[in-house]
């Protein structure tokens, strides 16, 4: 028998807007992997695709909505969560996923994240964390590690970053996980668990951004960052989330896992009939 067979189409082409491929993301970027993984999870969840909606904000991750062949909304910078709240409350039948980046969701949109998690709105939230603003060319953001070099921290980042899973968990998110795009099977399983739950669910996905972050921070290309994940990540669902910070240094660990899976009353607007 021969080796590979060349073809023109992919089995998940119906889940992506294949007429828009190739996508805009750079070689070595992890966003395509996270998108492919979520596309598979959407199907494998068994939820009808016609009732699944994806909402994104602005930035490289903001483009995810536009590549998924479901009802999809590419909104304004930071506002994906409140837009999604409107969709969900006006039509509770919808399974609404917010797919956006660390800058969009935790800097300009940070306040919306806090309050949506506090309320326990029924939203599935996936945050791609690549430690910088990629779309604008690699500036520091709310998850950039201390000391990291970006185009706006040429002398090293002076700000301590958010620990996203700790933030989410402290606000009462009912499902909290962190994976990397290298841990794609675990991520797939985690996405399925999240899609199967109700309430505010949060998955942080670490993904390489070689152009905006890796090359200027002693990590290298996308592939090098994947090897970095392979070396530095440990899976520990029982970890103390307060300590689960990410330094992205060659001598520091990154803790991964499905950390939180609890039940809490799901947000219902005041006065809604049972």
């Amino acid at each position: 028998m021969s080796g590979e067979i060349y073809v023109q189409a992919h089995p998940v082409d119906h889940l992506v807007r294949a007429d828009r491929l190739p996508h805009i993301w750079c070689p070595g970027c992890g966003l395509g992997s996270a998108t492919a993984c979520f596309a598979s999870a959407m199907v494998d969840s068994g939820l009808p695709l016609d009732k699944q909606v994806v909402v994104s904000g602005i930035g490289c991750t903001g483009r995810v909505a536009g590549y998924l062949n479901v009802d999809s909304f590419h909104t304004t910078h930071g506002r994906a969560i409140p837009f999604a709240i409107g969709l969900k409350l006006a039509n509770p039948e919808l399974q609404v996923t917010v797919f956006s980046g660390d800058g969009d969701m935790f800097a300009i949109g940070g306040n919306h994240f806090l309050h949506a998690a506090r309320r326990n709105v029924d939203l599935n939230v996936v945050c791609i964390n690549n430690f910088n603003y990629g779309m604008t060319g690699g500036q520091f953001g709310p998850t950039t590690p201390l000391g990291a070099r970006t185009t706006t921290t040429p002398h090293g980042n002076a700000e301590p970053p958010f620990n996203l899973v700790h933030v989410a968990s402290s606000l009462g998110a009912v499902f909290v996980a962190r994976w990397t795009v290298l841990h794609i099977r675990q991520l797939h399983r985690s996405m399925l668990r999240a899609l199967d739950k109700r309430g505010f669910r949060f998955i942080e996905v670490l993904a390489p951004c070689p152009v905006g972050f890796g090359k200027s921070n002693d990590i290298g290309e996308g592939l090098d960052e994947m090897w970095f994940y392979r070396r530095q990540c440990v899976i520990d669902p029982e970890t103390d989330l307060a300590q689960a910070t990410i330094e992205m240094k060659h001598d520091s660990r990154i803790v991964l896992g499905d950390f939180v899976d609890i039940e809490r009353p799901v947000f219902r607007p005041s006065g809604w009939e049972e």
Binding site: P82, F83, A90, N91, P269, S270
Partner: peptide, 27 residues
């Protein structure tokens, strides 16, 4: 709420405006 509608007080006006756009796309 008594008429089967939805009232939600948001965290700010940025979110309020975004939420009504989302609700409109839900019909």
């Amino acid at each position: 709420p008594r008429l089967g509608g939805c009232f939600v007080q948001m965290e700010d006006e940025l979110g309020s405006m975004a939420a009504i756009l989302g609700a409109s796309w839900a019909g």
